[in-house]
């Protein structure tokens, strides 16, 4: 059963193709990921230098921007 080949033509019944779920989740994970990764690195820099959150703030902004850039490159036209 597993070795049976699928029909050559896509089925023309009422079955819609799966929605591009992944696109949305990828966008969210890049955006959150960017802020978490660089915010986290900024937080570590803060702890190391004894500053009070300036590196964290820069990290979150840079990470957010990089996340938006990645979304545009990976998902954009």
């Amino acid at each position: 059963m597993a070795g049976q080949q699928p029909p050559e033509n896509p089925p023309e019944d009422d079955s819609p193709p799966p929605p591009n779920l992944n696109g949305g989740y990828v966008a969210i994970s890049y955006l959150i990921g960017g802020m978490v990764v660089w915010g986290g690195i900024g937080w570590l820099v803060d702890r190391w230098l004894g500053t009070e959150g300036i590196a964290l703030a820069i990290g979150v902004v840079v990470g957010g921007a990089a996340g938006v850039y990645l979304i545009a490159r990976r998902l954009g036209a």
Partner: peptide
């Protein structure tokens, strides 16, 4: 990701985080 080399150091950790941890 397809991007100029000078922003890759910023992007690669995000890709790692989003593809292998998230």
């Amino acid at each position: 990701p397809p991007a100029p080399w000078f922003i890759l150091p910023i992007l690669v950790p995000i890709e790692f985080f989003s593809n292998f941890i998230v």
